[in-house]
Design a protein around this nucleic acid. Structure first.
Lengths: 224, 224
DNA sequence: CTTCCACAACCAGAATACGCATGGGGGTAT
DNA sequence: ATACCCCCATGCGTATTCTGGTTGTGGAAG
């Protein structure tokens, strides 16, 4: 899931970005309206979080421009103003939700997930399962054969990515991009290592292996 | 499918090349415009990915030169510039699509496949089948008479190539070019060896042979 | 019908590339 | 301050590919 954040205040931006990344999102950021608009028009985001008060092109105009060109990407507006008027104006412009600063991060996250759930139409399964392996996305609990498995964030994220692509081969490049948000070659074996770690926790102690290697290509998760 | 990549930044080049290879393409690379132009003029590529900022001959001039001489090979431009003006200039020069760095590899791949699909007219099939032999390109699973067959990358690639040319004879030279990306004679019998290994796995245990030898010419895959 | 030649098929050892595992160091969060 | 996680480097084992040699087969000519 890719999120665009347009926010000029560095501190707030960092706060949001880190929070979202920890929640498993890939985040791009822009500090002004023009760059934000450009990103929105060129990259396929699943949602955007936009401040109204921006240097240059302001948030509402930005959304208006986005809506002219583009399909409906869910947008959450951030604002210091709490007047009802602004709120209405924001929603009229084409935003999908409205949050007043200062806000609690958990609320932003909850609203964001709700929006994505709504827009993707797919009633965003709260859990994924393959064979006797299941993963609860809300509680971040992973269970194999009734036995709970503890996973650090990156490994959890990788497993989620694999499970969302059940039976389909995902290349190392795609993993690199999805988990690290890299668009260049790190010249190391980080992916191999992460997969290895995940396997040790998910597959090692069990008879039926779920994570399979496709040499020269990548990995698949599947039952047989 | 053969792709030309012209990009001077080593890290980005590696990233793209590996990604494309993992996706099953044969990739040639050049780090500067002159060599890129030479390759484009001498080899038959199905598409090209070209950076605008290059040492020596820049990307736009390169495309212009290509267009002078040559039939319409689909081109995707990569650029660090995000202005709309540059984008328009790129598209006017004769490129077919435009991607801003940093970009998401999945998007590059999607656009590339869309371009190829458009230019060749053929809709990219998700699986291939001949008689009781079938091959799933996504999961990379090969099945003969309901029995699963494991194939290493090269053999898989060869089988895919043969099946895409069902009932048509493919010469050894063509195979060399597509699998090894060679345009010269390696003076060895690598092709024979590879075909042999593929036969052992696909044809040996079955009554009806699918891979046939045309002496002095090459090979065909067909039912009878 | 036999012989010869060219090409294809097959085999096995060697070289290589690739993926896997482990441990240390640095950074970060608690 | 401590513990944890993540990145990175290294070494190891194995799968896969390449190479050269050898055997097998078909076609053409004598």
């Amino acid at each position: 899931m890719r999120i665009l954040v347009v926010e000029d205040d560095i501190k707030i931006a960092c706060f949001i970005i880190k929070g979202l990344e920890q929640a498993g999102f890939a985040v791009d950021h822009s500090g002004n309206g023009e760059d934000g608009l450009f990103l929105a028009q060129t990259e396929p985001y699943d949602a955007a979080i936009i401040d109204v008060m921006l240097p240059g092109l302001d948030g509402l105009s930005l959304i208006a421009e986005m809506r002219k060109a583009q399909a409906h990407t869910p947008v959450i507006i951030l604002s210091a103003k709490r007047s009802v008027g602004d709120r209405i104006k924001g929603l009229q412009t084409g935003s999908d939700d409205y949050l007043v600063k200062p806000f609690v991060f958990a609320e932003l996250l909850a609203r964001l997930q709700a929006l994505i759930r709504r827009s993707t139409g797919t009633a965003e399964a709260a859990s994924l399962a393959i064979g006797d392996l299941s993963m609860d996305l809300l509680t971040r609990e992973v269970v194999r054969s009734g036995q709970k498995v503890e996973l650090p964030p990156r490994e959890f994220s990788l497993l989620e990515y694999l499970m969302r692509h059940e039976n389909r081969v995902v290349s190392k490049t795609m993993i690199l991009e999805h988990i690290w948000n890299y668009n260049f070659d790190p010249q190391t074996n980080v992916v191999d290592v992460l997969v290895c770690r995940l396997r040790n926790k998910v597959d090692r102690d069990f008879d039926q292996k779920l994570i399979h290697t496709i040499r020269g290509v990548g990995y698949v998760i599947k039952k047989s």
